[in-house]
Nucleic acid binder design. Sequence first.
DNA 1: TATTGTTATTAGGTATACCTAACTATACCA
DNA 2: TGGTATAGTTAGGTATACCTAATAACAATA
Lengths: 222, 222
Amino acid sequence: METKITAGVEEYLEALFHLEEENRAVQTKALAEHLKLKPASVTEMVKRLTAQKLVTHTPYKGVYLTERGRTAAAALVRRHRLSERFLADMLDVPWDELHDEACKFEHVISDKVERKLSEALGNPATCPHGNPIPEADGTVAADTAEPLVGMSARSKGRITRITNEEPEFLQYLANLGLMPDVMVEIEEVAPFGGPIIVKARGAKYALGRQVAQHIFVKPSAS
Amino acid sequence: METKITAGVEEYLEALFHLEEENRAVQTKALAEHLKLKPASVTEMVKRLTAQKLVTHTPYKGVYLTERGRTAAAALVRRHRLSERFLADMLDVPWDELHDEACKFEHVISDKVERKLSEALGNPATCPHGNPIPEADGTVAADTAEPLVGMSARSKGRITRITNEEPEFLQYLANLGLMPDVMVEIEEVAPFGGPIIVKARGAKYALGRQVAQHIFVKPSAS
DNA sequence: TATTGTTATTAGGTATACCTAACTATACCA
DNA sequence: TGGTATAGTTAGGTATACCTAATAACAATA
Ligand SMILES: [Mn+2]
Ligand SMILES: [Mn+2]
Ligand SMILES: [Mn+2]
Ligand SMILES: [Mn+2]
């Protein structure tokens, strides 16, 4: 019952890291949904993670990574995003398949291979979806981009980051041409939770809030 | 109880494939030694493999891969050796560490990634230790090389293949400069299981039979 | 404050894949 | 042909990590 971080444990840490990135309350139930497991299973694993001092848990409040946990999670996310870069840059694996493939690679990369991989890729700062690759020491670069969903009409910017990497979602965005480095302008924000109309590459698209929430944009002077 | 080939199962298939390559009798005990497990564990797993029609087992005789088993094993060895090539060619991981790292990668490579990887590497025919990479259809190229241990004095050839990939063994050979593509000449074969004296790169080395058994040489006209 | 829907936990199972210790079967030699 | 070393199996355990069904705890509201 030592520091034995198995693939199973790693998936929980990864999920917690991602949910924290979106500052969502990470209750047992949310974790279970994210990991596609049953709440009972999560209760059990959270107990183990707590015993290993990787998380703290206050029922009905949330599960929180400890320092130790966050460090381990950052290392894992680093390996995940480096794997995505490898798969995209060296193997030309399609955009929407990167995440799931990387989710397997992340568990088999040793420290040494991680260093060599990062080097071979030119020490990239982000994954192919624009999400930051944590440094080897666990620090994550601050991000000044903001979600499309919070921007006001008429503002412009460059897409830097997509924070939902589910295949169907990425396919949808790829079809619209909404991916990192593309310039967008907010045409209109419909009231009462209505769509956000954006202009990109000369075309206009009406995006639901759910979608706009996961598209981050670096605003440019208007 | 279907075709669920887990990482555990894969390790057994891999071991069987390697032991068959050396045409060694693959008894429960040999398998246990090779996998660093206890015989009781092997008995149990062999039962499962038999149920899945991946092997047949005759006690005191040996465990044999079925067609199905051999195909699965060849696919695994293909992924293993492609992984080694990736780690060596693209990441510059040292010779003696390739095998153990690849042993983890082999279990997380999908068919699609395998294809892309092979392509990106230029469809290599062998791993960095000279061992053949099975084709995608499971066939393995015939090898005309023979082990140093069976060669007679005065014969010459080029090393093509090292069939023991344990780190200490590879370090030993690397120190002597005995690796694929190096020319060697048998100086003398000492009787009664004594050493084999070889000349390589101008130096002479006395190799034990255990060592010579794992060095394969393609004879050249003397 | 009592009700109710949500969230979480417990109890009891399953499956994989290891282990040790005790026992059995076999091969092979004398 | 019997004895013995070697090989193999069985029985009973452990640990991880899932599950369902039943139950408990809580938050928020009526
Ligand atoms: Mn993952
Ligand atoms: Mn990504
Ligand atoms: Mn392996
Ligand atoms: Mn190799």
